[in-house]
Nucleic acid binder design. Sequence first.
RNA 1: CGGGGCGUGGCGCAGCUUGGUAGCGCGUAUCGUUCGGGACGAUAAGGUCGUGGGUUCAAAUCCCGCCGCCCCGACCA
Length: 570
Amino acid sequence: MRLSRLFFTSLRDDPSDAEMPSHRLLVRAGYVRQLGSGIYSLLPLGFRATRRVEQVIREEIDGIGGQEMEMPVVHPAELWRESGRYQKIGPELVRFHDRGGRDMVLAMTHEEVVADLTRDLIRSYRQLPVIVYHFQTKFRDEPRARGGLIRVREFVMKDSYSIDVDEAGLDRSYRLHYEAYERIFRRLGLETVAVGADVGIMGGSLAHEFMVLNEYGEDTLVLCETGDYAANQQIAQVRKPEPPAEAVLPIEEVATPGTDTIAALAGFLGVGTDRTAKAAFFTTANGRLVTAIVRGDFEVNETKLVNAVKAVGGIRPAHREEIKAAGMEPGYGSPVGARDTVVVVDDLVARSPNLVAGANRAGFHLRNVNVGRDFQPDVLADITNARAGDPCPRCGAAVELRNGIEVGNIFKLGRDFTTALGATLLAEDGSRVHPIMGSYGIGLGRNLACIVEAHHDEKGIVWPAEVAPYAAHLVELGGDRDPSVRETAERLHDAAAEAGREILWDDRPESPGVKFTDAELLGMPWILTVSPRSLKAGGVEVRERAGGESRIVPVEEAEGLLTGRQAVPA
RNA sequence: CGGGGCGUGGCGCAGCUUGGUAGCGCGUAUCGUUCGGGACGAUAAGGUCGUGGGUUCAAAUCCCGCCGCCCCGACCA
């Protein structure tokens, strides 16, 4: 490809709205352009790189028996009503109607379609197991896009789906995907850690997220320093401290003016935050008030809380009036004397004697509050966030908290979708059963961005060979003055193209500085320079973008390198 | 949805406080000189100042509404 013909431009200045290196570089180097918030075009360079990512995924999913297909982006709303998600999912699901007034949705994922096809196509256990997949556009009207390609609203995802007769089959399909994902991310040059994850609105029984560590990551990961435990903080369970063994003391009210935070309260009373009980208030989608009680030295984990009360549709922070209506006082709240609220108590609080808790009266707290004696929990569960330094649940070593970006996930869906849609088949024993599904996603654009996050330097992108849009970047200098330079460049370019390994040939009439700078910005693995000087020195200058020394090789050798007939020089 | 910021030629920005009809750098086009690390000179093109309304003799500038984009939070199969 001649750079002079490429539909692109590089920018000298960083785009003002880009913060993450991947966003900055992909825009500056002419790989992508933004069309709207969370909506991007892939320019030819970006599209080529994405296709190479896609090909790696295709090879590995084909390798575990996946069958590639394609499902639509526009779905009849009826299908989503059948699964129940039309009602369950909020504005993230785009709804519209066609000219006939029929309700339609834009696909945010494709479980419904797979389940629909399953009930249509699968009659017998003999047809299973099946893994199908496609690369298809998803639209999710996220409340906020961010980070360039990291969190967008429209994106292409590889999503595969497994259909099995029983749990053992699902286990196998899940394991196959787990291993395929490890191979995919290794080939893409991504170091990932697989963490246990919340199953969320998908339901199901088990999920892993493949995470790359990144300071801009939106997820918090709980990682054991010995490497034997890794989980998303949403579900991470660590060992909790042992509360002091004390005799239960009589409850007493104490004036604590101006202490509407735990820190202020502990300071005022001169006790540790671990001797206090913190109340946090939430409201469920159907209007129930949830009072969560954790010890003052811990934070409420909302995912765990949602799961503890099985709050379909999630929870939001409660309003002051809602709290007061339940007989509690914001800032000085506790379940002591409360009514009309679901009291969820963290297991550690239940074991901790004589805590300081709110008196439900502004400016007052209660000393020596004890769960069971002074109030009754409706639900007892682990509802706290793991903290840095807490003991690993497996080995007791300290865990650390790191930010991560989810580059892939795998879910054991179970039978929810096939049951809801009425997909059945005849099992070996003649019984009619609902098949069991798994769902497995990898977002292409996000992976591309994460690759750039992991492979760049101050000058630009440094593509791993497996995903580089072109294998090499040929810098031609002085070709307009020296015909032999132009001829050599053309020969290398054509030879590579004929061998099926197209390279990028900078034939623009630009100064050397501009060309070298762009070559480094665009990031092809090999940078070759042809110039009167290089020819005089014996051929073509060859340099590895990743940082190798440059050296002169004869033209024939350069040609061999580009066509793959000759091994890459050491 | 709450908080903050921004919107001025393709890109990055100044001008706004104190109203007087738009400027800088880069890029682009043509010509010439250069030619191994973002060259130099000359000439030129290119802007409804996001948008609607208001105030005013006069609005990029002041006031109000709306839209868009970015960041933080909420949210996130």
